[in-house]
Simulated scan of single mutants.
Amino acid sequence: MDDSARQRRWPAYTMAVLFLGYAAGKAVLAVQHRLGFPGGPPVSAAETARYARDFMAPATAQWLATASGVVGACLALATVTRLGRRVPRTLMLPVLAGMFLAVASGAGIMMLDGFVGIGVGWRWYHGLLGLVVIGLQAAMIRSYLRATRRRVGSSPGALGPAALVAVLPALGSIVDDRGRATGQTRSGASVNVASFHCPPRCARRTCSSVGGTT
C-alpha cells in the first residue's frame, strides 16, 4: 500500500510544464537549424559550423533535445499518475536518478555562469532558474519515494509493532476471560449430560463416573 493520497503532485506537474516548454523551444531552434537554448545566450555562426563539422547537424541535435524534453515530461507525470505507478520502482528510480543528474548538470552550468561567470553568456536570472529546477526535481523525486515506499504493517489486516504492543494485553485478558467461561460451561455441561443420560434405575457408580459427582 502506498501513500499516494498524501503525495505532493505540484512539483511533478511543474517539471512536466518546464520540460514541454524546453521541448517546444528546441523544436523551434531545430526548424531554424540553430544551436542554443530557449531564452539562452545566442550561438555564433562559427560555433554552429564547428559543431556541425565535429559532431552532427544542428537540426539533428535539436530534434534529439526535443525528444528528450518530451521524455522528461512523461517521466515527471509518471511519478504521480496511476499508469506510471505500474512501472516497477526498481526500474523507475535509476531512470529518475539519471534524469536528475542530466538536468542538474545543465542547471549547474547555468548557475555557475550566471552567478560567477565562466564566459558562456548565462545571466543571473538563468542561474536562479537553474536553482529552481534542481529544487523542483529534488521535490518531485522525494515525493515519489515517499508515495511508493512500503511500510511495515501497511498491508490490509496486518498490525505494526506498535499496534501489537498495544493490543497484546487486551488479547491476553480476552483469552483469560474466555478460558474461565469455557471451563465453567464445560463443567456445567458435564453435569447436565450426566443427569440426562443416567436413568433413575442406573447404578450410582455409573452416574458418579460420568457426572463427576459422588
Results as ranks from 00 to 15, higher is better:
residue 70 V to S: 00
residue 83 L to W: 08
residue 175 V to T: 13
residue 198 C to E: 05
residue 72 G to K: 07
residue 213 T to G: 08
residue 134 I to T: 07
residue 150 R to T: 10
residue 121 G to Y: 12
residue 142 R to M: 07
residue 26 K to A: 13
residue 61 A to E: 02
residue 166 A to Q: 13
residue 76 A to V: 00
residue 66 T to V: 11
residue 176 D to I: 13
residue 166 A to V: 07
residue 156 P to V: 07
residue 144 Y to C: 02
residue 64 L to I: 09
residue 92 M to L: 09
residue 114 G to F: 04
residue 162 A to N: 06
residue 103 V to D: 05
residue 138 A to P: 02
residue 69 G to I: 00
residue 172 G to V: 14
residue 60 T to G: 08
residue 190 S to T: 15
residue 75 L to I: 02
residue 66 T to Q: 09
residue 93 L to G: 01
residue 73 A to F: 06
residue 38 P to R: 10
residue 164 L to D: 00
residue 180 R to Y: 14
residue 46 A to T: 05
residue 113 D to H: 11
residue 64 L to V: 09
residue 81 T to H: 02
residue 79 T to E: 05
residue 12 A to W: 06
residue 52 A to G: 04
residue 12 A to Q: 05
residue 174 I to A: 15
residue 160 G to W: 09
residue 10 W to M: 08
residue 84 G to S: 04
residue 145 L to Q: 12
residue 72 G to W: 08
residue 74 C to Q: 05
residue 185 T to H: 13
residue 205 R to P: 02
residue 93 L to C: 02
residue 44 S to G: 10
residue 76 A to P: 01
residue 185 T to S: 14
residue 116 V to R: 15
residue 130 G to F: 10
residue 83 L to M: 01
residue 53 R to Q: 04
residue 134 I to A: 12
residue 125 Y to G: 00
residue 11 P to L: 10
residue 205 R to Y: 14
residue 88 P to L: 08
residue 30 A to L: 11
residue 20 L to C: 14
residue 166 A to F: 10
residue 63 W to L: 06
residue 169 P to I: 09
residue 130 G to E: 07
residue 41 P to V: 05
residue 205 R to I: 13
residue 196 F to N: 04
residue 135 G to V: 08
residue 94 P to H: 07
residue 25 G to I: 02
residue 99 M to V: 08
residue 59 A to M: 06
residue 131 L to D: 01
residue 1 M to Y: 11
residue 191 V to W: 12
residue 158 A to F: 14
residue 28 V to S: 03
residue 129 L to S: 09
residue 126 H to P: 04
residue 10 W to V: 03
residue 26 K to F: 08
residue 152 V to F: 14
residue 113 D to Y: 09
residue 201 R to K: 11
residue 63 W to H: 00
residue 24 A to G: 07
residue 213 T to E: 15
residue 166 A to R: 15
residue 202 C to I: 10
residue 39 G to N: 09
residue 198 C to I: 13
residue 28 V to Q: 06
residue 33 H to Y: 13
residue 185 T to K: 15
residue 100 F to D: 00
residue 9 R to W: 06
residue 15 M to R: 04
residue 139 A to S: 11
residue 72 G to L: 05
residue 80 V to F: 10
residue 10 W to D: 07
residue 50 R to M: 07
residue 168 L to H: 03
residue 89 R to Q: 10
residue 19 F to Q: 07
residue 44 S to L: 03
residue 96 L to G: 03
residue 132 V to A: 15
residue 10 W to Y: 13
residue 192 N to T: 12
residue 201 R to H: 15
residue 167 V to W: 13
residue 210 V to I: 15
residue 45 A to T: 12
residue 165 V to Q: 15
residue 133 V to F: 12
residue 37 F to M: 02
residue 139 A to K: 05
residue 174 I to W: 14
residue 119 G to L: 11
residue 69 G to H: 03
residue 27 A to R: 06
residue 74 C to G: 08
residue 114 G to R: 05
residue 127 G to Q: 08
residue 203 A to I: 00
residue 2 D to E: 14
residue 134 I to P: 01
residue 59 A to F: 06
residue 92 M to H: 06
residue 121 G to M: 11
residue 46 A to S: 10
residue 6 R to E: 11
residue 98 G to T: 01
residue 75 L to N: 00
residue 78 A to N: 07
residue 8 R to P: 00
residue 80 V to M: 05
residue 1 M to C: 06
residue 176 D to M: 15
residue 104 A to N: 09
residue 59 A to P: 00
residue 21 G to L: 15
residue 106 G to Q: 05
